[in-house]
Amino acid sequence: MNAIEMRHVSFAYGSAKNGPTAKKALDDISLAVESGGITGLIGHTGSGKSTLVQMINGLLKPDEGEVLLDGVNIWAEPKKIRQFRFKAGLVMQYPEYQLFAETVAEDIAFGPKNMGLEKDELDRRVREAARFAGLADDLLQKSPFDLSGGQKRRAALAGVIAMRPKILILDEPAAGLDPAGRRDILGGIKRFSRESGTTVLIVSHSMEDMAMYCDDIIVMAHAKILMHKPTAEVFSDWEQLASVGLDVPLITRVAAALIENGVDIGRDVYTVDYAVGKVRELLGENPES
């Protein structure tokens, strides 16, 4: 079954809803994301990514069309929308600015508490989430405001993981972090997805990160979905990406230039290690050796 499905979803923001200048933020979007795995969502600022994300989590209601999680229409009973917010956990951009509780543990427990969970289960959830997010146990009793930038980010991430969402949506989870911090947080998310079977949707501008961590990628442009394909196929279509002002990873541009220079490395190169392997193949070496 598809973890996320959208059928002909359209949406416009308040002031743009009516009238001749009506500008849609989402224009007849249909999509299906399989359960498990990491899907990337890329697109220009203003292409509709954030709106799409808030649609999946039920923060926004479509003007037209249906949003289904695990095959259930989330707006079938509007009063029960909260249960879908627990199902599709959303980590917004710079989530560390939303920390508020006295201790890290209390902050992580906020979501599960809203779900109605009690003492022991709450404790278990907090510990489990902290472990997935890479937070050491001794940080749990500290004030969230005494943590370092990277730790705050992880505490906020743990707060959503603790709800054990079936789908985890992250908006620029690595923004503003240094290279090691990016690797830590994205690596942690990948591990979490593999171990728990959670479907992950990452919104990011960093093509290099997307190439490293995503199984497939959705490209949005002008309130529509331009393509939704496996990562290699998306980046091999660099002409179409460029046509909507999107970049490809630097290594893909190297590969493109290599093809021009008569070295047929293939269009589907999007990570350095894969490119190196391809070169070895070209030289007639067995990549396994």
């Binding site: 808030q54 989590n57 923060l59 909260r82 917010r85 627990f86 956990g89 959303l90 917004m92 989530p95 600015y97 939303q98 906020f110 979501g111 809203n114 779900m115 707060g159 959503v160 709800m163």
Partner: peptide
């Protein structure tokens, strides 16, 4: 703007 973002974030965590 910021208030709206925080409200959204906490609503996403089930705040009512």
């Amino acid at each position: 703007d910021e208030t709206q973002k925080i409200i959204n974030a906490q609503t996403a965590r089930g705040a009512d």
